[in-house]
């Protein structure tokens, strides 16, 4: 009962190994994967990835990307993937506060609509980093 998980980012392979289950932040909500899952592909929103490896649960903040699920292996392709121990909580908190402020300013301004999505993404990514790091 194991899935071969590979996480690729432009800066290199972030993870490679056998895992029991994993939970990914899909665009339509988080979803869990066990071995023998239906073969499919979906896009991911910035959020938290959970990996169950043996007794351990690894948590990582991922940015938007794509997950490709096969019966015995999963490939996750994201812009960035940071595991909890790689995140500096203090800096993540500062970044999240800044993103929140920008998002609020954006909402009030006239020409904010186009930028909204970008800031929304930056915000959810920042919040995910804080959440991952706090656990």
């Amino acid at each position: 009962m194991a899935i071969d998980l590979t996480v690729v980012t432009p800066e290199g392979q972030a993870f490679q190994g056998e895992v029991q289950t994993l939970v990914l932040p899909g665009v339509e909500g988080d979803f869990g994967i066990l071995e023998g899952h239906e073969v499919f592909m979906t896009s991911l929103r910035p959020g938290e990835m959970q990996v169950h490896q043996g007794e351990e649960i690894l948590r990582a903040a991922v940015s938007k990307g794509i997950a490709e699920v096969h019966e015995d292996h999963v490939t996750v392709m994201v812009g960035s993937c940071e595991f909890a121990h790689e995140i500096d909580l203090e800096r993540a908190q500062i970044a999240a506060d800044r993103a929140k402020k920008q998002l609020e300013e954006m909402r009030d301004s006239e020409d904010g609509k186009e930028l909204y999505q970008e800031y929304q993404e930056a915000y959810s990514k920042a919040v995910a980093r804080v959440a991952v790091s706090e656990k």
Binding site: V27, E38, V39, F40, M41, T42, S43, K64, I66, E68
Partner: peptide, 16 residues
Amino acid sequence: IPFEIEPDAAGLLNVL
């Protein structure tokens, strides 16, 4: 590449 795509190919293109 899996045939099943959720929600749809357009959503995937928006990321890719």
